[in-house]
Design a protein around this nucleic acid. Structure first.
Ligand SMILES: [Zn+2]
Ligand SMILES: [Zn+2]
Ligand SMILES: [Zn+2]
Ligand SMILES: [Zn+2]
Lengths: 132, 132
DNA sequence: TAACAGTATGTAATAATATAACATTTACAA
DNA sequence: TTGTAAATGTTATATTATTACATACTGTTA
């Protein structure tokens, strides 16, 4: 049973923008794009982003300081994320591979640490960029 | 056969500082600490950090915007990194687990993408923080 | 309904992280 | 010694993110 999150006005504006863009967006680029909708300040953007990340509607691509809509319908909370990133064209996609996620979710070592969350970023060249 | 990198003056000062600290350090904290050694500007720090990352002497903890000395003697180039991060005390350690690194280095999916690099960050509570 | 708590918003200022541009110097091999 | 790559120094600026404070909205319960 999972909680339904009704997005607030600003959250919805910002989620829709990121979702429609189809790729990662940076916070100040988001800000620029939503100013005509009345969102004027960085903090308004960051607050919405924080919430959207918290509920798993978007993820932060840490190596790029950018935010992407969740492409994995089962990813309700951002506790186990994996991305592939093309170092040439900067295309990003969310990897949804159940073997990988099982392997990582069950990973443990002898450090005595209990892992509750992970983020994995793969880098390389995408199909298009490889063939250039 | 691997290339020996002789660190330059600034690179050595900054690597030694990070290495001795035993944990992740942020760029401006590094700057503050090396000002007495004549390194006065952010760019001097970032240039040394870039080089040290490139040759694998340090790694960037992306989720924390911080830099840590490589704790894995065999990690000459930063192409395959994994860390465990305590969300309470912010302790970070580099995971060196050959099964994990083999699994990730060999990972491929049907995206047609060839992965040449990855970075994985695990989050949780360390032993000490768990028992509090 | 009224009171309350939790969440969201608005606004200004500022902090923290990182890079651009340009001039100069050093290391080192051909 | 001369060419070249790497490193340094310096100033300014760009980019990313948070603090602080005031106000408003949403839903629950007395
Ligand atoms: Zn997702
Ligand atoms: Zn590409
Ligand atoms: Zn390492
Ligand atoms: Zn801890």
């Amino acid at each position: 049973m999972q909680k339904i999150h009704n997005l607030s006005k600003n959250q919805k504006i910002i989620f829709d923008l990121i979702d429609k863009s189809g790729g990662p967006m940076k916070a100040y680029s988001i800000l620029f794009n939503v100013q005509k909708k009345g969102i004027k300040a960085p903090l308004q953007v960051y607050r919405a982003l924080d919430k959207l990340v918290e509920i798993g509607k978007i993820h932060k691509i840490e190596s790029r300081n950018a935010f992407i809509a969740c492409q994995n319908s089962s990813c309700q909370v951002s506790k186990a994320t994996a991305f592939s990133i093309c170092e040439s064209c900067e295309n990003v996609s969310e990897i949804s591979n159940s073997k990988l996620s099982k392997y990582l979710s069950n990973f443990s070592d002898n450090s005595g640490m209990k892992y509750s969350k992970y983020n994995l970023e793969f880098f390389g060249l995408c199909k298009k960029c490889k063939s250039k």
